[in-house]
Computed example of a mutant assay.
Amino acid sequence: MDIKDLLNPEESSGEAKKESPLKSLEGDLKFYNESLKEVAVEIMAEGISSYPIFVAHQHEVKLGEVILDKNDLNTEWSIHASTLEEFMEKGLILPEKQEKFLKQYKDAYHFMCVFVIVPEGANFVFFPYQ
């Protein structure tokens, strides 16, 4: 799934279209681009995981390690660094779904894997490094 798939929610019948909060996420990911790539490469180079996952959120989340705090950086989204292994430990990716996840996972040197948490739910997106 591409982040653009999440940016334009379908208009409800008769209601005015609201701007998705994910538009601000796209801007923040572009702003954080270099830092996120460095962290992903470090996770892989140090042998921590071959599958880094970034957790993007606007509220408190107990998953991964905080690497970019929206309050410190005056942005709208905070980012935590995590891994496939942590997602499996916490039951967010079930063992029987691991193979499916790995087939969807894109090259971590060219795409950031972002687990986006919004009030309506959460989903993975792959966003290209600039």
Rank of each mutant, 00 (worst) to 15 (best):
F87H: 07
M88C: 02
F54A: 07
L25H: 05
G91I: 04
N33D: 15
F115Y: 14
L7F: 00
F54R: 09
K17M: 15
E15W: 09
M44C: 11
N33P: 14
S35R: 12
C113K: 10
L63T: 07
Y109Q: 15
L6H: 11
M88A: 02
K103T: 09
E86T: 08
S12C: 11
E10L: 14
F124I: 10
E26I: 06
S78M: 11
E46W: 00
S12K: 15
A56Y: 06
I79G: 00
H110K: 15
S20W: 06
N123W: 12
A108L: 14
K70G: 02
V55M: 04
I117D: 02
Y129Q: 10
E38S: 14
N33Y: 07
P128M: 00
I43V: 15
P128I: 01
Y32F: 01
A81D: 02
V55R: 00
L92G: 09
N123Y: 14
I67E: 08
E11S: 05
G47T: 07
F101L: 04
H110L: 13
E15T: 09
L73T: 06
T83E: 11
S13F: 13
K90I: 04
K90Q: 12
I79H: 05
V55W: 05
L22D: 01
L29H: 09
K4S: 11
P9A: 05
K37M: 09
S82R: 12
C113S: 03
K103F: 05
M88I: 10
F31T: 13
L94R: 03
E26R: 13
V41M: 08
G27S: 13
P119C: 08
V116A: 04
V55K: 08
L7M: 10
S49I: 10
D107P: 10
K23S: 05
G47W: 12
N33K: 03
E120V: 10
M88S: 09
K37L: 01
L73G: 12
L63R: 04
E42I: 11
S49Q: 03
Q58P: 00
A40T: 13
I3C: 06
D2T: 10
I53R: 06
L7T: 03
P128V: 02
